[in-house]
C-alpha cells in the first residue's frame, strides 16, 4: 500500500494561485511551474507574463488562466470547478490576491475599505470554500494564505490592510482544525518588506532604514517567500498545519 507521501507524488499536483499575473503571485506561479506542478491562476486581464505562459503552453497542459473578477464569489467558484473538470483534482491553493490602501483610517474612502475587505478577505474565503469541495473528496490538500507582518505588528496607515491580513490568520487557524481530519492542511505565510511592485516606490533612504531594522540586514525577495510556500505545499510539510510563518529576516522578532 502506498504511503500518503507516495500517493501525493505519484501524479502531477494541481495548484490554484489567486492573483498570479503580477508581483508575488507571478513569482509563485513561476516557481510552482518550475517544480512541475500544474498551475491555474486568474486576473481581470492578461499581463505580459500571462501572455508568455499561455503562448508557451497552448494546450494548457501545465498552465491555465482565466479572466475573472476576483471579487465575484460566483466567478471564483466557477473557476475552481473549471480547474477540477480540466485536471481532475485540486491539491494546493495559494490565496495571494490582495489590494493595498494606504492612509489614516479617518481619511480612507468607503470604497477603498470595501475593496480591501472584499479582495483580501472575502475572496480568499470564497475561493477556499470552492477549492475545499475538490480537496474534501480527495482527502488531501494544502492551502497557504498570504498574510503579512502587518498582521503581527502594527503600522500606521495600513489598518484595513492589517485587519484583513490578520483575519486570514484567524481563518487559517480555525479552518485547519475543521478540515485537518480530512487530511487538508492550512498555513499562513506572513511576508515582511520584500522587493516588489509594492516597495518599488520606496526611496533609497527608506529601504536602508528597513534593512537596518531587519536583523538579517536586507529586504526580502519573492524567492524567499516562494521557497517557503513550496515547502508548505509539499509532502515535506505533511505534519505542519495551522501555523503562521513570517518571512521577514527577523523584522517582527
Amino acid at each position: 500500500m502506498k504511503t500518503k507521501k507516495e500517493s501525493m507524488t505519484a501524479e502531477r499536483q494541481v495548484a490554484i494561485v489567486s492573483g498570479g499575473s503580477r508581483g508575488l503571485g507571478r513569482a509563485i506561479v513561476a516557481d510552482l511551474l518550475r517544480r512541475d506542478m500544474i498551475v491555474a491562476t486568474f486576473s481581470r486581464s492578461k499581463t505580459p507574463f500571462i501572455e508568455q505562459r499561455l503562448a508557451a503552453d497552448p494546450q494548457a497542459e501545465s498552465f491555465h488562466w482565466a479572466s475573472i473578477d476576483g471579487a465575484d464569489p460566483q466567478a471564483l467558484a466557477g473557476f475552481a470547478r473549471d480547474v477540477l473538470r480540466r485536471y481532475g483534482r485540486i491539491d494546493a491553493l495559494v490565496n495571494n490576491m490582495a489590494v493595498t490602501g494606504d492612509g489614516l483610517l479617518t481619511m480612507i474612502r468607503d470604497a477603498d475599505i470595501h475593496a480591501q475587505v472584499s479582495i483580501n478577505l472575502e475572496s480568499a474565503i470564497f475561493l477556499t470554500r470552492a477549492c475545499l469541495k475538490g480537496m474534501l473528496p480527495q482527502g488531501s490538500g494544502s492551502i497557504v494564505n498570504i498574510s503579512s507582518v502587518n498582521a503581527l505588528r502594527g503600522h500606521a496607515g495600513v489598518s484595513i490592510y492589517s485587519a484583513t491580513k490578520a483575519a486570514l490568520i484567524g481563518l487559517t487557524k480555525s479552518l485547519a482544525v475543521e478540515v485537518g481530519p480530512a487530511g487538508i492542511r492550512i498555513n499562513c505565510v506572513a511576508p515582511g518588506y520584500f522587493d516588489s511592485d509594492m516597495t518599488s516606490g520606496f526611496t533609497d533612504d527608506q529601504r536602508a532604514r528597513i534593512a537596518r531594522r531587519t536583523p538579517l540586514r536586507r529586504l526580502g525577495t519573492v524567492e524567499d517567500i516562494a521557497n517557503l510556500i513550496w515547502f508548505l505545499l509539499s509532502p515535506e510539510a505533511e505534519f505542519i498545519t495551522a501555523q503562521v510563518i513570517a518571512v521577514d529576516g527577523g523584522f517582527v522578532g
Partner: peptide, 13 residues
C-alpha cells in the same frame, strides 16, 4: 458534520 461535508462535496463533483 465533516463527513457530511465530504459527502456533499463528492456529490457535487
Amino acid at each position: 458534520s465533516l463527513d457530511l461535508a465530504r459527502i456533499i462535496a463528492k456529490l457535487e463533483m
